[in-house]
Design a protein around this nucleic acid. Sequence first.
DNA 1: CTGAAAGCGCTTACAG
DNA 2: CTGAAAGCGCTTACAG
Lengths: 348, 348
Amino acid sequence: MSGHAHADERRDRPTMRDVAALAGVGIKTVSRVFNDVPTVAPDLVERVRAASGKLGYRPNLTAASLRRSGGRTNTIGLLLEDVSNPYSSFVHRAVEDYARNRNVLVLAGSLDEDPDREREFTRTLIDRRVDGIIIMPASDDHRYIIAEQLAGVSFVFIDRPPSPLLADVVVSDNRGGARTAVQHLLNSGRRAVAYLGDDIEVYTARERFAGFCDALAAAGVDCRPELVRHGLRSVDQARDAAREILASAPPDAIFSSQNLVTIGVVEALHELGLHHTVALVGFDDVALAGAIEPGVTVMAQDPAAVGTEAARLLFERMNGDDSAPAIHTLPTRLTVRGSGELPWPATT
Amino acid sequence: MSGHAHADERRDRPTMRDVAALAGVGIKTVSRVFNDVPTVAPDLVERVRAASGKLGYRPNLTAASLRRSGGRTNTIGLLLEDVSNPYSSFVHRAVEDYARNRNVLVLAGSLDEDPDREREFTRTLIDRRVDGIIIMPASDDHRYIIAEQLAGVSFVFIDRPPSPLLADVVVSDNRGGARTAVQHLLNSGRRAVAYLGDDIEVYTARERFAGFCDALAAAGVDCRPELVRHGLRSVDQARDAAREILASAPPDAIFSSQNLVTIGVVEALHELGLHHTVALVGFDDVALAGAIEPGVTVMAQDPAAVGTEAARLLFERMNGDDSAPAIHTLPTRLTVRGSGELPWPATT
DNA sequence: CTGAAAGCGCTTACAG
DNA sequence: CTGAAAGCGCTTACAG
């Protein structure tokens, strides 16, 4: 015997009606017991408990929410770039924790920067009647959410503002953080600072590049086009771009605008033996960054704070807050580990 | 004007009945159109399309599944150790992709190794009537799932078998992989091999420790208790344990049985300047492992393959497969990067 | 305090 | 090919 459920012995799940019959009460009394209504006679509560225990009864929450006033499903949607990327998954965890404390479950999905998937997934979530949606957007036109907001679905954006601004958005201080990071590099006296980053069409890359330019301008340093590379979407692309830039227009410092780019740059620097010569600060923290020699100095975001703040805003909206949508900016933090503080002039 | 939905102008969502009235047809015809029943007259299809477009109608899928035969909700649950840990999140992504192709959504949650949370979360998912559950278990008694299986919920386990074996489980070849990893260390001639790992109560830790012992026994090497540390649950604990073991009973090689432990060991080796002297192989891959000097040699699992296989098995069960539950073992792969192949005798 | 009737938004089963 | 009736498993609104 395997203890395994064979199809031919599959039983139907008992309903409230079955419990009521066994307990000898009306189904409304069973409903009251499972909803913790306090005005039920103790002996009836006991009989209902016994009957549902014997039958293995469990209430059907989706059926309940269908009739329940307000029609809340106690489910929210969370649309991320990719549930398996570290930034997204830390946001996810924070949202999960916030939601769990309120008895709400999270339907998460990956958009892979695909605007069509954003639309499809949003529609799917709406067809399931989620109460709200937190979204790290892939598209750049969000007018389609207006009808949904009017129908009662709340939205909060993460990382990139909706356009036009129809809902709250939680972002890191990308521009200010990048500016501070680059200033940190300039402080050592270095002047040939390279920028390696994601596609400039991406909001965060655009902001961080602007911060890079801000810092150079403030220091009276020219921004040299041969030291700038956009459109880096993977570790491999970043490594190749870094190799090339280090060979041709050698910079004495590098600002990498994102996680994967930073990893690629680190790999290139180590290959070329330049990791003690060319300074590096990355935007976004990376695992093991402290175990490398030198440690990678980064301007760290706080994805958990982003997730918590987004969830907080979403639940406020779901609870009726109808104030004007706003941009909520969260600070970033410089984490000094060595790569951004190499001696200058270089002593190698 | 903000374009934002104010509570006082919130409209009710149109229903099938509203669409039917506007299109001048019965609601069953609207239902047929939205379910792509091919036998509807083209002009009626057109009128329904126009009416639902004008009203912004979207079908309510939870209401549909309530009456639909079989009662599928097209939702599965995924209970992970922590959605934000790399292993879990790669499993998650693979499950998402498999489910998406079948129009199924994933409700994911983190158990944090808490048996009570496992029970609670499973119950919550069942109250939502998910069609199946993939679970990386935290508890060690799974008899409570028998009733659910009889009621039609499918289960597949990941990483650790249910006890007793009531459902399929997908595991990596922990014992065989660990054995191979340790043999790899012994091949260089090293004999004082240390083991640092997670709580021995944890199934995977137990299996990997068994593989460690297998390899020593096969090589005729004694297992020295002073070279073994269990119960390491964080980077910090692992670093401290590694420091201590390296100072007192100096090993010439280390096998670390898990991700976080490997990171802690790497940090300790670098601090003590032993990273070119003491060989290291870790179980589980770690990010940036290739950028460190030396690169970290690991016995890598394939979390994406685990997720895909678990999803495949779950959907087969949901589609009526009632064969006996089995243990499905996936191979691991040695990724050579340097730390496991240091010259011996040590030349430092 | 308790329960029978009506209804949530759909689909099933059936009649035309 | 089309639609009115009944029902999915609950909650609401109401009467006793």
